[in-house]
Design a protein around this nucleic acid. Structure first.
Lengths: 309, 309
DNA sequence: GTCAACCGTTTGTCCAAGACAAACTATCCG
DNA sequence: CGGATAGTTTGTCTTGGACAAACGGTTGAC
């Protein structure tokens, strides 16, 4: 009665890969790939293999590769490229534990997942949990998703569970209203990845910083206003790999010009690794661990006297 | 340095309203609205007023109205239509408190927001909190967003805070592995609204039910497998107003045919109010409060109640 | 009076090919 | 090594046509 795989609609491909319909048609015109079959109405019907490969391409593009260079590689070669990039693998999460977590995820066993995560927080402490467990786990989940081993909703489920675990752990720390520095966390508009913010918060709160997160997608003018209103000492911004480089640099420079010099700007996230290393007036945090020395450095010399411009 | 409002790109409008580019162009062709000015390159530049009105239209469409009937109404008239629909306003949240929450939201004051929500949970109890506070608050936030009084990220912030408060309250209840019934909660693919699931969970857990949520967007075959694997007694599905009616009915009928007759299917959410036919073999829950009698009915007879209330 | 099936109208999505601006790469110069 | 310039690559926007799905009113049966 129900055909098992009748082919995937261009809208569904857009949703599952994040590549717009226009772009999918343009690639077909320019590169000849993907080249989906047409149904009786002449509409494109993509295969699941196409979707897997498109996801792999998107993921590599998100870390800076260009479509023309990789679109004709096979899925295996694309995976090899991704693995090569992942070389500095720390193996901090015991592979057995990582497998156990992924298994629980695939079983949709949220209780087991949450139990495992909470156990790890307790055992490692919050900071090590974020750096040694969540970071490689994010990568493992991302890779599994790219290979089509995980559904979209399963990745969401994972994100949600990490979110809950981190939020609970952060809330366990007391809030001292006088704690310094005050850190304001958010992302630019068009940036949808907010887990990074929570991970930074989880690094900073145990150090005694006072964090306020605005969530994702705050317009730049609102960021400026919020920074002044909260009298924040540090403004921390997160950029995922898929964020437009130019928009990030322009926005950061605009903010630097508008904010009082006493406010320190931190820019972190995957995409900051692709930025020019010298951004005057701001601190680049290519990974989460570097937030700790950055905070110590602020306390040593960066602390502004009084002048709130 | 700061350009005030140069006009809004069609992509940004798609993102901010949820109306696809194709649809925006088609409306312009068919209805003459919106009719954005063109920039030097001939590309559409929408105004913020357009975006506000388009959001209002989208919201009314999500509750069943048709674009052709409302697209030429003014924003005020659209708001009046939305208000008229909201007539059965319970005013269970004191307007002062509601205003206080919205103010905290607009100040991005997550601490105040969370404090208020937690206080309300404690004071009202979880079930009343969900029914008397969160439901009207969702509507108030939705209305404010529709009128352009809230940014997208502010709505996200609200959702996140409610999410955290509900999740924390639910986790405070002990999990008895033998509790009955076992309820599996999820949504169909293409359904992005997951707060409803958490709200149902918050209604059912205090009644002693054992809830497992798969989050949003579970493929139907996975729902079937998960229901069998968890030996769930009740499968609860949530459909927001923007979900396609046909897809919901078809999917529900397919599930009903594939699941053992002993499994009760609950369908809830805004869009189930637009379903006409009494759906054989399943229970429609037009609002959250009706989940409690439905649960009691299951315990009394192990079968769905007849009438649709 | 209620419900289901039918049919014309409304509505959303897809398609094609062209145009152009933004982003990136390569090269040259200080 | 860093910065400006020229050439490619790449993504998004444009128009206008086509068609299928969803809707709403009417008809017919009970």
């Amino acid at each position: 009665m129900a055909a098992p795989r009748p082919g995937i609609n261009i809208s569904a491909v857009e949703r599952d890969t994040g590549l717009s319909k226009d772009l999918l048609r343009m690639w077909e015109r320019r590169y000849g790939y993907p080249h989906p079959v047409r149904d009786a109405a002449g509409e494109r019907q993509y295969s699941t293999a196409d979707v897997s490969k498109l996801r792999a391409i998107k993921r590599l593009m998100d870390v800076g590769m260009r479509p023309g260079k990789i679109i004709h590689e096979s899925l295996d070669e694309l995976n090899a490229l991704a693995d090569a990039r992942t070389q500095p693998r720390t193996d901090a999460v015991a592979p057995a534990l990582e497998r156990e977590l992924l298994d629980a995820l695939k079983r949709h066993d949220t209780v087991a997942l949450q139990t495992l995560l909470v156990q790890l927080v307790m055992k490692q402490g919050l900071q090590r949990f974020v750096i040694d467990t969540v970071t490689p786990l994010n990568r493992a989940v991302g890779d599994a998703w790219m290979r089509g081993e995980l559904q979209v909703f399963e990745e969401h489920l994972y994100t949600e569970q990490v979110y809950v675990a981190l939020r609970a752990a952060i809330n366990a720390f007391p809030r001292a209203p006088s704690a310094h520095p005050r850190v304001l966390l958010t992302t630019f508009p068009n940036e949808f990845h907010g887990v990074g913010l929570l991970m930074v918060e989880a690094i900073l709160v145990p150090e005694g910083a006072q964090c306020v997160s605005l969530g994702t997608q705050t317009p730049i003018e609102d960021i400026r206003r919020a920074t002044v209103a909260h009298r924040a000492n540090i403004l921390a911004l997160s950029f995922s790999g898929s964020f437009a480089l130019r928009a990030a640099v322009d926005g950061l420079e605009a903010l630097r010009g508008q904010l009082p010099p006493g406010v320190t700007i931190w820019a972190g996230g995957e995409m900051t690794r692709r930025m020019r290393r010298t951004m005057p007036g701001m601190v680049l945090l290519p990974d989460l661990a570097s937030a700790i020395p950055a905070l110590k450095s602020w306390r040593a010399h960066g602390a502004p006297p009084r002048g709130t411009g």
